[in-house]
């Protein structure tokens, strides 16, 4: 046991180093600047919180991320569920359909949405055909959400399908044989067993959504700007490294707080539902 622990540490070393050099060092140095420039203290944070843009855009970013989580669950859960019902061939097809977007660059996909959603574009024409003429989704919150959900959905589906495929369907038969109807079987047996996957997928999508930059930049108007874009303006237009570092730390802490709150909220739910389904 002791030897294997030593080997694990050794094997982990390159990864730890990589994270330290590529993540901790740059983040640390830029966050440090937020406390030391122009002089030691919290002046940068006073400045950032006095700027109404900070809290407004931060709040918007959290809401958009939550919205993306909700929509990804709405589309991803049934899809992942379907993957557990079909045969191996069909499952492979469904899996490939999820993975295809991963093989295309985010940039290319976002530009594809630009031409689909722009004025007099295909989506606009389709809506006009369906009786809603004159709608342009490019430059709106809806446009941004469509682009984000399309990019984030695979993360939700892949995470969910891992959990759902491990759920023993015999338990559902058992519940029904004991007199539970389909709804009750789902809500009292299947859903609780799937919650770890729901939680993992949601956390992943939420964190990824908080950092979105290209998608809102290309599909939205400045009114849909997210925090990453505001950080970008601080660096590019204002050459304000301290402010950008400060904003980054604020986002980092907000994310950590949200996740901590989610974990705390999730614990009693799991206890209430009786041990959840994760028996690793």
């Amino acid at each position: 046991m002791h030897t294997s622990a030593r080997w694990s540490a050794l094997l982990l070393a390159p990864a730890v180093l990589l994270v330290a050099i590529c993540f901790v060092v740059p983040i640390g140095s830029i966050v440090l600047r937020s406390f030391t420039e122009p002089e030691l203290g919290l002046a940068t944070y006073e400045r950032l919180f006095a700027d109404p843009t900070t809290l407004r855009v931060l709040g918007r970013t959290l809401l958009v991320a939550l919205g993306a989580v909700g929509l990804c669950l709405l589309f991803g859960y049934p899809y992942a569920y379907l993957m557990t019902l079909v045969g191996p061939d069909m499952r492979a097809v469904l899996m490939v359909l999820v993975l295809v977007p991963f093989w295309t660059s985010l940039m290319a996909r976002t530009f594809a949405w630009v031409s689909l959603l722009q004025r007099d574009g295909p989506v606009s024409a389709l809506l006009a055909f369906a009786g809603v003429p004159g709608v342009t989704l490019l430059g709106t919150a809806a446009g941004v959400m469509i682009g984000m959900v399309q990019i984030l959905l695979p993360y939700m589906v892949l995470t969910l399908s891992t959990t759902l495929s491990r759920i023993d369907r015999g338990l559902l038969t058992a519940a029904q044989s004991l007199g539970a109807n389909r709804y009750r079987t789902f809500f009292q047996v299947y859903l609780p067993l799937s919650l770890p996957g729901v939680f993992a997928g949601s956390a992943l999508v939420f964190i990824l959504a908080l950092g979105f930059y290209i998608t809102p930049q290309l599909l939205g108007s400045p009114r849909e700007s997210l925090i990453a874009q505001v950080i970008g303006v601080r660096v590019e237009r204002l050459v304000d490294f301290a402010g950008a570092g400060g904003l980054s730390l604020i986002v980092l802490l907000t994310t950590a707080l949200c996740l901590a709150a989610a974990v705390l909220a999730f614990r009693p739910v799991r206890a209430m539902l009786g041990q959840g389904g994760d028996r690793r």
């Binding site: 700027d51 109404p52 843009t53 407004r56 855009v57 400045p222 009114r223 700007s225 505001v230 303006v233 237009r237 204002l238 304000d240």
Partner: peptide
């Protein structure tokens, strides 16, 4: 700087 901060505040609201 001042004008760009004002611009960002205006354009993002």
């Amino acid at each position: 700087d001042e004008a760009n901060e004002a611009w960002t505040a205006w354009s993002t609201s």
